[in-house]
């Protein structure tokens, strides 16, 4: 049974016509199911838990990066708290222009393509990142200044120039990574990518330095800045990060970035 989770913001009048088009297309493709509209009185965690208990097998997030993050979090949280590995398939229909980087990285550019991809049902099993009690599908970011990292409890990393730290499961910007490195959400490890900038007195002559590590466990310390998870959730440090291997069955497009 298909369950469509509509984020609260898509209930805005400006998306009314678009949602109508989506519903018509999914009916044409024989993918119709139950629609769950999130709101002040209806939390995503409760909705997802209820639907899984009632036998939902395919859950589709209709919204943006935050909707995807929260839906994935709810599915994994349910499986963990009930100690079950019920086979759930997760799909995405992006709505709106902004904050849909995760859908793009999975090869889903817009809603029409998303409906075809759901119909095609190309499933990949991917790893999921865990940051304290939150789960993330794609990546997390924090400012490099004042941040200390401890990898696998063996060694620590200090960053001496201003820059940004990315913790990657599914890369949202794969072209930014050093050309001879590789990142995949199916390799059982997470990647740490650090980009720093050394400023020069001569304008436009600043030097960019890149660092790249692989890890399974990482601790982040920073008293002043928070970690941005999946382009949507802010978390204060200290944060313990680890990987849950092959944890989510996800319906992806042909043009996915892994």
């Amino acid at each position: 049974m298909y369950i469509y989770i509509y984020d609260e913001y898509v209930n805005h009048k400006k998306y009314e016509h678009l949602l109508g088009q989506i519903e018509t297309r999914i009916t044409d493709l024989g993918l119709n199911g139950k629609i769950v509209r999130l709101g002040i009185m209806k939390s995503i965690q409760d909705s997802v838990s209820t639907e899984i208990r009632n036998g939902a097998k395919t859950i589709i997030a209709v919204g943006n990066d935050k909707t995807i993050n929260q839906t994935v979090h709810s599915i994994i949280n349910f499986q963990k708290s009930h100690n079950t590995k019920t086979e759930i398939f997760f799909g995405i229909i992006p709505v709106g222009e902004k904050n849909n980087l995760i859908a793009k990285a999975l090869g889903i550019k817009e809603w029409k393509e998303a409906c075809e991809i759901l119909s095609g049902r190309r499933v990949e099993t991917i790893d999921i990142g865990q940051a304290n009690d939150n789960y993330f599908l794609a990546q997390a970011e924090i400012c490099g200044q004042g941040t200390m990292l401890k990898i696998n409890k063996h060694y620590s990393i200090e960053i001496t120039e201003p820059g940004k730290i990315h913790i990657i499961n599914l890369s949202l910007y794969p072209n930014n990574l050093p050309h001879n490195t590789k990142s995949s959400p199916q390799d059982g490890i997470l990647e740490l990518y650090i980009q720093t900038k050394k400023h020069s007195l001569i304008k436009f002559n600043s030097q960019i330095n890149q660092s790249f590590f692989s890890f399974q466990k990482l601790t982040i310390f920073n008293k002043h800045t928070s970690l941005l998870v999946d382009n949507s959730i802010n978390m204060p440090a200290p944060i313990n990060i680890n990987v849950l291997k092959k944890r989510l069955n996800i319906i992806v497009g042909k043009k996915r970035k892994f």
Partner: peptide, 12 residues
């Protein structure tokens, strides 16, 4: 390359 320890990085 599996690991790159860049110029601005100190590993302890």
């Amino acid at each position: 390359a599996d690991t790159i320890i860049g110029q601005a990085i100190k590993v302890k």
